[in-house]
Design a protein around this nucleic acid. Structure first.
Lengths: 338, 338
DNA sequence: CTGAAAGCGCTTACAG
DNA sequence: CTGAAAGCGCTTACAG
């Protein structure tokens, strides 16, 4: 059983294939009557455009690429991507656009993957996540003139639109809350220093702490893993003048902190307050439940897809800021010990 | 700057485009010398085959589809898919095959998505996960003759190959271990009853318990969520003759159990032993760390992709069994109270 | 408003 | 071993 083609529709309708194409694509050049006839036939025989043929003549692949550059193991409990992807697709599916997903180890492999699927014309554009302060993918995107959207802050040196949230404001809000509770020794366990949003958050954190006249805060950098969360927390809690509150760049490390505190006999939140980075389900799965910066990741995905499609359609969209994360207060934060 | 085509290579090499195609595809019909010349030129100008053109003439999309049918929120902390996808891609990328991912709410939407991307010839085959005992997707796959691989047990009524692990044996191993520790009241919090592997595991669980002469065990069904994990655990722990050990169908619910036990003042593992379903990082993130059935999900993905590609290549591969999960014993299991 | 035709970039029988 | 040509299923100027 051969797949139906527009040639078959044309034959049945007694018109040329050109007319069928026009009718199917809602373009002028066919009478209302002929159009209806053609649409009815297409519907009846269950016709769908062959993606390859459409791409070849229309020069649109009708799919976009997402290359995630992270070691596979790190992707485990990290709930960001699945929700983000769900958001992307919510928007893409309505536009008959497919999502081509690739998971690679590092930026070198990501660049190779991008070059390849672009050269093969498999995608019309790309979603770029986990932006580094100095990101090797950006020059490649520019060189190849690949329509893309940056999942992160707008940046100079590129005209690519960005979809972003005010990480700085969120980091400040967390500090303000802790200070309001009475904390004066607040530390931060940050994520990968190469990532731009890590820098943004750390800078905002430092400014906020300084703004409250609390002196230079301690900031430790990690790779986001459980192991480094444990290590950093132990370091912070082992010194003298140990912090009474620590903010973490993700939920996995905040959870690690909970375990370290328990192992060291430090009460949470009695002796130590903990603020988690994202607000995944993880935060309510542990005891005490974690106070966290909460935001709508799925909506972030929806907006990202929308901006990318605009860019692909040549509408040169500006960058888009989505809602700032707010603090979801649970049981891991309290006033410091007297 | 136009993308280079084989026409350009042909012109440079002074041969026909047919010869170029043969050379590039490693087929006979070109002299070794010409072949090398062509390959060198292709390499020099950075030629890559246009995927659409290749599909249109070769009738291969060079991509496979994965339609995940789960509510987006459930995908959060569940680490299975990301690792599974990483495994799929590890195998696919070497074969220059892309992964087309779709996330939908239910089987109805999944079927629609499958029909569409098959009709559009976007994929050469599909990976089918989360199989139901009575699965509406299967007849559609058969009707459309879509090459596919079942991520689950081989089944009658279809000639599609399956890649599976012995869930029954794993479930039995968990029971055997608990019995060896001295437990005699063992319950189970199972996943979605519609899922085939839920049924398989529950049946094996019942048989194992009966085999040890322990009488009819309690089995509660859930939808895998935290909320139902909480509910089921409360139910089990509230009755008289409460179980001294409970096995869970996933890690999220086992973690929920930890919280319920704490809330009810029941010591784990002193008064209650808990065995988790998969062995994600979650199991070592909580206290006590969870004893769990451990298996290599990424390798599962690799094998799945391999079987699917064989099927697409018309090699009608048989079903493949991967290693059975083994019990990773941690701190949530111990002898029952005396 | 409609038809006939070229073209997208490949693959693949079919002659030479 | 090589070349000329048809064809995959669409889209899109270009005539009528």
């Amino acid at each position: 059983m051969k797949r139906p083609t527009i040639a078959e529709i044309a034959a049945r309708a007694g018109v040329s294939i050109g007319a069928v194409s026009y009718a199917l694509n809602g373009r002028p050049g066919v009478s209302a009557k002929t159009r209806k006839l053609i649409l009815d036939i297409a519907d009846e025989i269950g016709w769908r455009p062959n993606a390859a043929a459409r791409s070849l003549s229309g020069s649109r692949a009708h799919s976009v690429g997402l290359v995630i550059a992270r070691p596979a193991d790190t992707l485990g409990v990290e709930p960001f991507f699945m929700r983000f992807i769900a958001g992307l697709e919510r928007e893409l599916s309505g536009r008959r656009t497919a999502l081509l997903l690739q998971v690679v180890e590092d930026h070198r492999a990501a660049i190779e993957a991008m070059r390849l699927c672009w050269a093969e014309r498999r995608v019309d554009g790309m979603v770029v996540t986990d932006l580094w302060t100095d990101d090797a993918r950006l020059p490649v995107l520019a060189e190849l003139r690949i329509p893309a959207v940056l999942v992160g802050r707008p940046r100079a040196g590129t005209d690519l639109p960005a979809v972003w949230t005010d990480d700085a404001a969120a980091a400040v809000a967390a500090v303000d809350y802790l200070v309001a509770l009475g904390h004066r020794r607040i530390a931060r366990v940050a994520g990968l220093p190469a990532l731009e949003h890590t820098q943004v958050r750390v800078a905002a954190f430092r400014r906020a702490v300084a703004g409250h006249g609390l002196g230079e805060p301690r900031v430790l950098e990690t790779d986001y893993t459980w192991e480094e969360g444990v290590r950093a927390t132990r370091t912070l809690l082992s010194g003298r003048d140990r912090p009474t509150a620590i903010t973490y760049d993700n939920d996995v490390m905040a959870t690690a902190a909970l375990n370290v505190a328990q192992e060291m006999g430090i009460a949470v939140p009695g002796e130590l307050s903990i603020v988690a980075g994202d607000d995944s389900q993880l935060c309510v799965m542990v005891r005490p439940a974690l106070t966290a910066l909460s935001w709508d990741i799925q909506a972030y995905g929806v907006h990202t897809a929308r901006v990318l499609m605009d860019r692909i359609d040549g509408r040169s969209p500006g960058s888009l800021q989505v809602a700032t994360a707010t603090l979801a207060v649970r049981s891991s934060t309290a006033a410091p010990p007297a």
